[in-house]
Simulated assay, not measured.
Amino acid sequence: MPPPALRNSVTWLERLFHDDLRTVCRGTGRHRAEVRDRCRPDQEVLYSGATPHPTPAGPECQAVLGGLPVLHPDPHRQPFLVLTAAQVHQVSDFLEAADFGALWGSARDELLPRYGGADAEPEARGACAAAHRELTAFYTRTAGHGEAVVKWLAERD
């Protein structure tokens, strides 16, 4: 999202996310909206070290769940999360410098039971590594364009 186009309005942000992913991409004039694979819910553990949110909201936490919340008037709806272009650059720098092996080593014991235990480690590690590469590529491209990021986590059932 180009920073000048960003609005700190729930109504505006809802309109941005109202339609399907293709519409969101057209509405922002970019094709950089990313959808995380099945590892997405676990990226919080990978980057913050544990759940729920135990570390300061530095770049490592902002990669997935961070950003300035724009609260929805309905308390049952998830807030929008906005990262400024400067924060996007910090996240990009963090992800580019991150050692995935070290991240996996710190999160492995918590993540493996969710994927079927030690026998499933190659597949689980591979899924999380692929998600890490996609996230790194997304933030690198976005930082390179000097853009902000707006996130809206899927509504929980």
Rank of each mutant, 00 (worst) to 15 (best):
D20T: 05
L21W: 15
L21T: 03
L21G: 02
R22S: 15
T23F: 11
V24R: 04
C25S: 06
R26W: 13
G27Y: 11
T28M: 06
T28G: 03
G29P: 06
G29S: 09
R30H: 12
R30C: 03
R30S: 01
H31Y: 12
H31A: 07
R32T: 02
A33W: 11
A33N: 09
E34W: 15
V35A: 11
V35I: 10
V35F: 12
R36L: 11
R36A: 03
R38Y: 08
C39W: 06
R40N: 04
P41F: 03
P41H: 08
P41V: 07
D42K: 02
D42T: 00
D42N: 00
E44N: 02
E44P: 01
V45P: 02
V45A: 13
L46N: 00
L46Y: 03
L46P: 01
S48H: 11
S48R: 13
G49V: 11
A50K: 02
T51N: 10
T51K: 13
P52W: 11
P52E: 01
P54T: 14
P54L: 04
P56Q: 14
A57W: 11
G58P: 08
G58F: 11
G58R: 14
P59H: 06
E60P: 05
E60D: 03
C61K: 10
Q62V: 00
A63G: 03
A63I: 02
A63W: 06
L65T: 07
G66F: 04
G66N: 01
G67M: 02
G67L: 04
G67H: 07
L68H: 12
P69N: 03
